[in-house]
């Protein structure tokens, strides 16, 4: 398993080369948003907006109105919480092509509740005209730019930074509203997004060895949410469906799946793993994923409960198949 160091940095510079309409705005989080080198490469297209996010949103709208495509880079919480009114009224309502590159999704930061974007997917999904994407690996970090750029309207991107694993081949880029099928099976269907995908991948082999068939779908587009593969996978799940998300269980992936099941009159059990309507706290990603039941062991326990079958899989079993020995444990990045 390849671990890619800061995949966004060089990729974004290269990608922007022949796109003079692309400009970058940050709110005092330049290196933290991995655009320090971008700034040095394209100083004329880089606008530091100080710690003033409300103005950054509406200012970006003004640039977009005049033909530019602003890529706002900052932490997710400073995009959808603090300046939501400006985001909604200046950008989303007029459907302007502003791209929100939102770092530190969910509990991917030890920074504590002020920096943990745990309800962003819910709010962005509820925002009309907004497309909502989430990157799950280095390939998606690299290819999400093309996906976002193809959208006529605002796009919110849950972005990964720092050391990012490559789970998907480079030749298989992210595609709008297309899930990836990572394992086949007809006992349970598991849907994951972002950093939780790695957890389900860890559980896949032990579950298969224990005779449990898991169909695992990786979701990178939260909205729109219309890939027919999802519905087929839900219909094909004998015991039910599990969602595992780095987000509160209200309004995110679990809710999207619940809506889909209800609208299609699918009477199956749905288990939503994620933050159970609670804020988290500051700690390492691995610690928090364990504490809040977002990790591979939590998924295995949920599968056992749903299928009524003990698998005998233990935590050391899952550690043994950790796809990169230190990766998940070594993520305790500073802000």
């Amino acid at each position: 398993m390849e671990i890619v160091k800061r995949p966004h940095v060089e990729n974004f510079i290269e990608w922007s080369k022949d796109k003079p309409e692309v400009v970058v705005l940050t709110a005092d989080l330049t290196n933290s948003s991995e655009v320090g080198k971008w700034r040095d490469t394209y100083p004329d297209r880089f606008f530091p907006m100080k710690m003033a996010e409300q103005n950054m949103m509406s200012f970006a709208a003004g640039l977009a109105r005049e033909g530019y495509t602003p890529f706002i880079h900052t932490f997710a919480v400073f995009i959808y919480r603090r300046p939501y009114d400006q985001l909604a009224m200046s950008i989303a309502y007029p459907k302007l092509p502003v791209r929100f590159v939102a770092f530190l999704p969910g509990i991917a930061t030890p920074g504590g509740v002020t920096h943990q974007a745990i309800e962003d997917v819910a709010i962005m999904r509820a925002t009309p005209n907004m497309t909502v994407l989430e990157t799950g690996d280095a390939t998606e970090v690299e290819s999400v730019l093309d996906v976002a750029h193809s959208v006529d309207g605002p796009v919110y991107i849950r972005m990964l930074r720092g050391e990012v694993p490559r789970l998907f081949p480079k030749a298989e880029p992210m595609r709008l509203d297309e899930v990836r099928v990572l394992s086949e099976g007809d006992d349970v269907t598991v849907l994951t997004a972002g950093i939780t995908t790695e957890e389900a991948v860890r559980a896949a082999a032990p579950l298969a060895a224990a005779g449990v068939g898991m169909k695992h779908l990786h979701v990178s587009t939260h909205k729109p949410f219309g890939d027919p593969v999802v519905l087929d996978a839900i219909l094909g799940a004998r015991h039910g469906v599990i969602t595992l998300e780095n987000h509160t269980i209200i309004g995110g992936l679990g809710s999207a799946v619940a809506e889909l099941m209800a609208e299609n009159a699918i009477g199956k059990k749905l288990v939503r793993l994620g933050l159970q309507d609670t804020y988290a706290h500051g700690a390492s990603q691995a610690y928090l994923m364990k504490e809040y039941g977002l990790d591979a062991p939590a998924l295995v326990r949920a599968v056992e409960k749903l299928t009524g079958r003990a698998t005998g899989i233990t935590e050391p079993d899952l550690d043994a198949v950790r796809i990169e020995a230190v990766h998940s444990l070594a993520k305790a990045e500073a802000l």
């Binding site: 409300q54 003004g62 977009a64």
Partner: peptide
Amino acid sequence: EVTSGSLGNGFAVACGMAKAAKI
């Protein structure tokens, strides 16, 4: 030109439009 009424936002949009003209 611009949707307004959520006070303050229109002014910041105007600033962005002025910056675009400068660029």
